[in-house]
Computed example of a mutant assay.
Amino acid sequence: MIDAQLTPSEAFDLLLAGNRRFVAGTPEHPNQDAARRAETAPGQRPFAALFGCSDSRLAAEIIFDRGLGDLFVIRTAGHVAGAEVLGSIEYAVSVLDCPLVVVLGHDSCGAVAATRAALTDGLGTNGFVRDVIERVTPSVLAARAAGLSEDDDIIAEHIRQTVDLLTDRSRLLADKIASGQTAIAGLSYRLADGSARVVTTRGVSAEVTTG
């Protein structure tokens, strides 16, 4: 069982170390056996809450080389955040005492591509997919206002905007970060090489590696 009292920096280092193993092709597959299953059955103490895109290529426990009970995972298309997402994250940091929250985006994101097409060409969608596009739209508009046009730069801006939204809307999360109990980091995953690169952080220091 991972120490429930990990600092935000220790939790962040642990997560990134797992991704480095995954990229290098040397995963350890920790906490994935029957003993871990029995150990976590009475309760959970994850060291990070991960809010990511639902893309099938972003299986959190695989790309960060973790196992049962390590990550509290919330996923939506385009990592768009509504009340249910905010409530889930607040549960993770207030009830489960997660010292780290991660927003995980990725290149070639379909939600961002659809939003760009809708804004540029007027291509619309039906049903509730439209709601996803509407929630991604502020990020794409912010990227345009900043003069950003490359896919990676727009993805990074969407990740930053999501981090801002979570901390602006959740006073609980913002207070946890301000007190040093929790940190939040935005990461951008590269599908081809498997790396999760740092876009932005609050409450923990890290070198920004996207761009």
Score class of each variant (00 low, 15 high):
D3K: 10
L6M: 15
L6I: 01
P8C: 03
P8E: 02
S9M: 04
L16K: 14
L16D: 02
V23N: 07
V23C: 12
V23R: 14
A24S: 15
P30H: 07
A34N: 06
A35C: 02
R36G: 01
T40Q: 12
P42K: 12
G43L: 07
R45S: 15
A49S: 15
A49P: 02
L50N: 07
C53H: 09
C53F: 06
C53L: 03
D55V: 02
R57V: 01
E61G: 00
E61Q: 14
E61M: 05
I62H: 06
D65L: 06
G69C: 11
D70L: 11
F72S: 08
I74Y: 08
I74R: 02
T76K: 12
A77Y: 03
G78F: 03
G78M: 07
A83S: 14
L86C: 05
G87A: 13
I89M: 13
I89K: 08
Y91N: 01
A92W: 00
V93F: 05
L96P: 07
V101T: 11
D107R: 13
S108H: 14
C109G: 09
G110S: 11
A113W: 00
R116E: 13
A118P: 01
G124Q: 13
T125W: 08
N126K: 12
D131A: 15
R135C: 00
V136C: 09
V140P: 04
A143V: 03
A145Y: 04
A146V: 00
L148P: 00
S149F: 12
S149T: 14
S149V: 10
D152M: 09
D153T: 09
D153N: 10
I154F: 11
I154M: 09
A156T: 11
E157N: 12
T162A: 13
D164R: 15
D164C: 06
T167V: 15
D168R: 15
R169Y: 02
R171H: 09
L173K: 04
L173R: 02
K176N: 06
S179Q: 13
A185D: 04
A185E: 04
S188V: 04
S188L: 14
S188F: 00
Y189Q: 04
R190E: 10
L191Y: 07
A192P: 02
A192C: 02
D193H: 12
G194E: 05
R197H: 12
G203C: 10
G203P: 01
V204Q: 06
S205K: 13
E207T: 14
T209L: 03
G211R: 14
